[in-house]
Computed example of a mutant assay.
Amino acid sequence: MSEILEVKIGINPISWSNDDLPSLGGEIPLSTALSEGREIGYQGFELGNKFPKDPAALRELMAGYQLDVVSGWYSGRLATQSVEEEIAAVESHLNLLAENGCKVMVYGEVANAIQGERKVPLYKRPHFDDDAFKRYGERLTAFGKHLLTRGVRLGYHHHMGAYVESPDDIDRVMAYTGEDVGLLFDSGHAYFGGGDPLTILGKHIGRVCHVHCKDVRPAIIRHARNRQWSFLDSVLNGVFTVPGDGAIDFAGIIELLRKNHYKGWLIVEAEQDPAVAPSYAYASLGYRTLRGLVDGIRTKEAA
């Protein structure tokens, strides 16, 4: 019998409120997200700006909802600063994650990134030349080694509007870093970044330590490119959605993860306007889609 897919299904609070665009769900309290997420069936949450920054307070909050702390985004700047500077900057966030049992940190490179700039089109994102990429990879590896001293692995988040966006960028960041750096595979950013999610996942499956399950609306992606939208305008126009509501082959993704013995979290993360895409309904659809695929595989194996 082949190995059962040993995963947990969690969610990012961005389905309820968006840290980069506070106008999207900013009025929704954290308690609503946590109670609804738990009711739907999610086992844990990634962090957002509304969560406590004190490790004990966070642990107490999440225990009250019987939810795990999965991970949390860290805005890294290793593209422009030293490993020593980054280690000093990350300390409080690393401690928050480590003290709450997290095994992965979501590392997003924000130096020179335009993902949060509403008026800057995506084509103006930053780029490395090959030598700069190699030096960046060395710094990432050293930083990843430091995180592992606390039992937390760096999960590198390829992201629209940043240095690592395209399939070629992902190839190079993996080539120029060591095994201490893992890859956060994000299906939506893989597609939007110009790649085939299954191809990217298959190529780098050995380094994948965390998975963001985000679906896409291809027609909106075409508009975003043709009309030179910014990342935030793309989000506002509905470029992303939850699994089961877009074009990505999540059955293929889940099967590929199973075949390669992935053990970790599947995180529903889909930036949308909750006034247009009601939080509970879409979070529920994302959960049911992933749960059905995971349980379907288990049923097939048991048979």
Results as ranks from 00 to 15, higher is better:
G151D: 07
R153I: 01
N95G: 01
G10A: 05
G151K: 08
M160W: 11
G26D: 01
T299Q: 13
V173P: 05
L147F: 04
L122K: 01
A63L: 00
H159L: 06
K103H: 10
S166F: 14
G116Y: 12
E255G: 12
R172T: 13
L122G: 00
E179W: 09
N237Y: 08
E6L: 13
N100W: 06
A111E: 02
Q228V: 05
E165S: 14
L58C: 04
D215E: 01
G25T: 03
L47P: 01
L47Y: 03
A63N: 15
D129C: 03
G238C: 04
A190L: 11
Q272D: 06
S284N: 14
H212F: 04
G44A: 02
H189T: 12
I221S: 13
P218L: 12
G292W: 05
W265H: 11
R38N: 10
F240I: 10
A33E: 06
V242D: 08
G25I: 06
E36I: 04
L140G: 11
N237D: 13
S187F: 04
A56Y: 15
I248G: 06
E301R: 10
I205S: 06
I248F: 07
N260T: 02
G296Y: 09
A63F: 03
I297M: 04
R291C: 11
E99Y: 05
D180P: 02
G25M: 03
V104C: 10
S35A: 02
Y280R: 11
H204A: 00
A247F: 12
V7F: 06
D130W: 13
K119R: 00
I200E: 07
G72I: 07
I248Y: 07
Y262H: 07
E301K: 00
V235G: 02
H261I: 05
P243H: 13
R139H: 07
F185Y: 09
